[in-house]
Each structure stands twice: as structure tokens, then as C-alpha cells.
Amino acid sequence: MSVSLQTESGVQRSTVQAVLSAAPVRIVVLLLCFLWSLPTIGLLISSIRPATDINSTGWWTLFGGGQPFNFTLQNYEAVLSAEGMANAFLNSLLVTIPSVVIPITVAAFAAYAFAWMEFPGRDFFFAGVVMLMGVPLHMALIPIMRIYTSIDLNGTFLGIWLAHTGFGLPLAIYLLYGYISTIPKEIMESAHIDGASPFTAFTQLVLPLSVPVIASFAIFQFLWVWNDLLVALVFLGTDNPDAFIVTSKLKELVGSKGQNWEVLTAGAFITMIVPLFIFFALQRYFVRGMMAGSVKG
């Protein structure tokens, strides 16, 4: 009974609805948003202060409290002017985009099969997928490193795409399965009657219907890969500074003991820009009633 739904459906507002959709809901949402943003606001304000100030007074001095507030962009300068930072951004994109698209593709096919095809071992494989979500990433590093060494895949982009694909795949299959399996049976059967092959049904029907869940998984996978440091360091190699991604570059700037932690204040925001852009870009796919609409259609 959101406002937009009301106008769409033309149902008249009852008093209960009017009360609930008005002030109290907005206040609760506003309060939660404020609470959730508070730590980030602290970081944002800290990022425009000199390190000595960050260490001696609270960030809220911006809003008064007697002390003068010194504004500086030096933390941002330190990150943006670092040698090789542009290259690192390019590398991060290069690592991330295929590492998001490949698992989604592979998982969508698999999830479709799990949901709508009969084949021996289906439950067994599905149980396996759930179980594999629990394998700690750290335990996979060395065995995969051994494989990569033997086929000379260490330090290549292909190697890291496949690694991220492997690590992200169980969750991708699981999430996509959860959604694809709820597609009403009638839709799938009507496609079959229309003579569509399973491949066509998949590309023409299932994929378009699954856009919301694909969009949400894409966001998560993008975030994890974008913010990953360990997998990149292990599989992209430590010998090749040309292959540094943003996170490894930042870690380098901060220093081995974290001495220059203040660059992280600015660094966190700079690295956040791309994933947040992706979030905004994909948000329009979380639309209401896709499934319902297609039933009618």
C-alpha cells in the first residue's frame, strides 16, 4: 500500500492506511537512516580534517563546540595523487566486471536447471551448492594456487576472474534459484506449449523475469570483488605492481603497520563511489510486480 501502489491501483485510502503511510513511518525510516549514516558521516567529516585534528578532537566539532574546524583536502590528495592510482582503478574495473558477469551467467543457467529440469542427482547437487557456501575462502587459496602454478595461470586476469567466479558461484546459484523457482508454473508451461526450447525459454522468459534478483546479486558480487584485497593479492600476484587494484594500492599507502591510516578516511569514500554508482544504476530494476504482470500477459 505504498503511495505509488495506491495511485496505480486506484484503491481508496482507508484511515488506517493514511495514518501508517504518513508521519510515523517516515519518522521511523528517517531515524533508522540517520542511525545507519552516523558512522559514515563521522568518517566523511574526518576525511576533510588534518590527521592531528582527527586524533585530538571529535569530528562533531564541525557542528560547534568551541574549537575551530580546520578544513583540508590533503587526505584526498594523498590518495588521488598517488602514483599508479588511475591504473589501479582501471585494474579494479578490469577484475570486477567479468568477475560479476561470469558467475551470474553460469549461475543463472544452473539455477534454471535446478528449478525447472528433472535430472538425476538434482537434490544432491543442490545440497552440495548450499554446503559449498560454507567453505572458507582462505582454505581454497593454496589448493587453487597449486593448480594455477601447474597451468601457468598465476598473475593473469583470467585466473582471478575464474577464482572470483568460483567463490561467488554458490551464493549466486542459491539466490537465483530461490527466485527462479518461484516463477509460476503456468508461465513455464505456456512457454513449453508455445514450442519454445528450454534454451529459448531461458533467454526469452526466465532471464528477463529474474532481473531483480540478478541485479541484487550483481551489486553484492560487485561490492565483494571491488573491495577484495586477499584474492587479488594471491592470484593477481605480488610481483607485478602494474596489476595492483585499488584496494592493494590503498593498503600500500596506509603502510604495513597502518601508520598513515588517515588516507583511509578519504580512500574509503573514493573507493565507494563506483559501487554506489552501480547500486543507483541497478536500483531501477527492483521494480514491482514483474511476475504479476507477466501472468496477465
Partner: peptide, 8 residues
Amino acid sequence: TARIEGGD
């Protein structure tokens, strides 16, 4: 650890 145990 990863590099030595991983053979590289």
C-alpha cells in the same frame, strides 16, 4: 604461505 605452499 600461499605462494610457497602453492608452489610459486
